[in-house]
Amino acid sequence: MDIPYTSKPRPDTGLYNAKVGIWLFLASEVMLFGALFSSYILLRIGADKWPSGLLNIPIGTFNTAVLITSSVTVVMAWASLKMNNFPKFKLYMGITILCALAFLGIKSIEYKDKFTHYQVWLKDGTTQTGHIEGNPYFLNHNKLDARKLDHIMFRSDGGHVVAAAEHGGNAKGGHAAAVKIERKDIQRLSAYVPAHSTYFAIYFTLTALHALHVVGGSLVLAFFWGPGSKMWKTDPERFTNRIEVGGLFWHFVDLVWIFLFPVLYLL
């Protein structure tokens, strides 16, 4: 059975069906991210304090440029097909996929940094941020107890230290020498994970959902670049439409990041 209107426009809508489909899907995506953005605003307004400076701005800026680059290359890939230039399509789509991989790679480095970065709340009311020797992932005070660890060797961040001096740290910038913090002095220990704070909960929710979209989109684009590109020989118009539809989704992913970047990194 042939699927109708994959190449030619439907008389009533003036569009091929996949294009109407992707726009309806994007409409639902706007509401999905809209709900999460409104949650962010609600959480932020309701918070007594909202942290800033916890994310790496140069890395975030670079990743924004990577995603913008991928957005222009995917539209250039579509334009190349419109100009019957298949090799150029392959080139631009290849660059788009590489940009997607670069974005995910950089994001995973950022995540790894957060999973090994800790805040420790001490029973004397002070807190410190920094790294635990050995750079363990996802450690917390409950796991210290479960592993029967009676202390941690903690290397404080110079810039974030609240009371490092009391524990032998160096508060003048850079990483201080590792100091021993006894378990009995620790009220709470948490990496920069969703459980750390409302800020990181919404940060990981928004960025992980966005990253999943990048993964999904890049898989589809990689299919069009690889085995799916055979359709160019049999039905070039339909293949060009597929690239347009895939590209529309990819632009949406870029569009979401355009708002996520200032909201999470800069404000």
């Binding site: 569009l15 294009k19 109407v20 726009w23 309806l24 957005s71 539209v75 632009h251 870029d254 355009i258």
Partner: peptide
């Protein structure tokens, strides 16, 4: 402004059919 540039030009919303405008 950036999102307008992406949606308007890369996604061709500046010159789309009425059906798309109705959805949006």
């Amino acid at each position: 402004l950036k999102s307008y540039l992406v949606a308007g030009f890369f996604m061709h919303l500046n010159s789309e059919k009425k059906t798309i405008y109705a959805i949006m």
